[in-house]
Simulated assay, not measured.
Amino acid sequence: MAVPVLRGLVLAGGRSERMQTDKGALQYHDLDQRQHTAALLAEFCPDVRVSVRPDQSADLPAGLQPLSDTFLGLGPLGGILSAFQADPNAAWLVLACDLPFLTRDTLEHLVSNRQPARMATSFKSPWDEFPEPLVSIWEPRSYGQLLRFLSLGYSCPRKALINSDIELLAPPVPEELRNVNTPEERAAATQELEQRR
């Protein structure tokens, strides 16, 4: 069986309420987080889209391809389902836009250990041992599974992974999965990244 093509999805449609400003527009590197994350994905995926709310499409930096949410009010799950609606035959490598420590090497580990016969390939969270749904490869067969979970009232992609047949990998550098959600975390992350340069 042919392995489904791998497309990239940057999740940038959140309301960033804790950060009090759009997390995707923050800049920890040379580009903002939407551009930086899309560039990471482009090394592994021939096509990269940025998941946004319909009202955000016009605000994306030039060169980024928006994928407007068609499943509204579902948080990250809405972005993942909207990607599958756009191309149900692809696998989607999904990344949140608030992961400034994530590197190409960690993504390469995920892609090279991908198991297309399973529903998804995910990293185990270093904080609670559960799958990290927003640093995962979702295979085409997960589309129906996610819709089924949604019909049962579950809109948490992590719950879907926990209750499905997935490949769960130990992250090579656990701290790279750290997401940045608040102004205090942003200040600490900016300082740490500057010290590494």
Rank of each mutant, 00 (worst) to 15 (best):
V111M: 13
N179C: 15
G73C: 08
T106C: 08
R197A: 13
P157F: 12
Q27I: 12
L177H: 04
A187R: 12
P4T: 08
A62D: 10
L9V: 11
R197V: 12
R141G: 14
K124R: 15
S142I: 04
P126I: 03
E139T: 00
P76R: 01
A170N: 08
K159T: 14
S82M: 05
R141E: 11
G144H: 09
D105E: 15
Q191V: 02
V180E: 01
L9F: 06
P140A: 07
E43C: 12
H29V: 05
D128K: 06
R34S: 06
S155A: 13
F101T: 01
A58G: 03
A90L: 11
S164L: 08
T103E: 13
Y154Q: 12
R118V: 07
L152R: 11
V180S: 03
R196Q: 14
E139G: 01
D128Y: 11
L26D: 05
A42S: 15
L102N: 03
P116M: 01
E176L: 06
C97A: 15
S142M: 11
L146P: 01
L147G: 02
R197Y: 08
L99D: 05
L99H: 12
E17F: 09
P54L: 03
K23P: 02
V180F: 02
D69Q: 15
S125V: 04
R49Q: 14
S136Q: 04
T190R: 09
D59A: 14
V3L: 07
G153L: 06
A86E: 13
R49A: 13
P100Q: 09
G153S: 00
A83M: 10
A170W: 03
W138F: 08
Q27P: 02
E175V: 04
P126N: 03
R49V: 15
T70F: 04
L9I: 09
I137V: 10
G75D: 09
V111A: 13
D165I: 07
E176T: 03
T182A: 04
V173R: 14
N179F: 14
S51Q: 09
D32Y: 02
F130L: 15
Y154V: 15
N113E: 13
L77D: 05
T37A: 01
A62G: 04
E17Q: 10
A117W: 11
R15L: 11
G79R: 00
T37L: 01
L93S: 09
C45Q: 08
P140S: 07
L41C: 08
L31P: 02
L169R: 05
R178Q: 12
P54M: 03
A83S: 08
F123C: 09
A160Q: 05
Q20R: 13
P133K: 00
G13V: 02
F123T: 10
L9R: 10
D55R: 04
V10Q: 02
G8F: 01
T106I: 07
A189H: 01
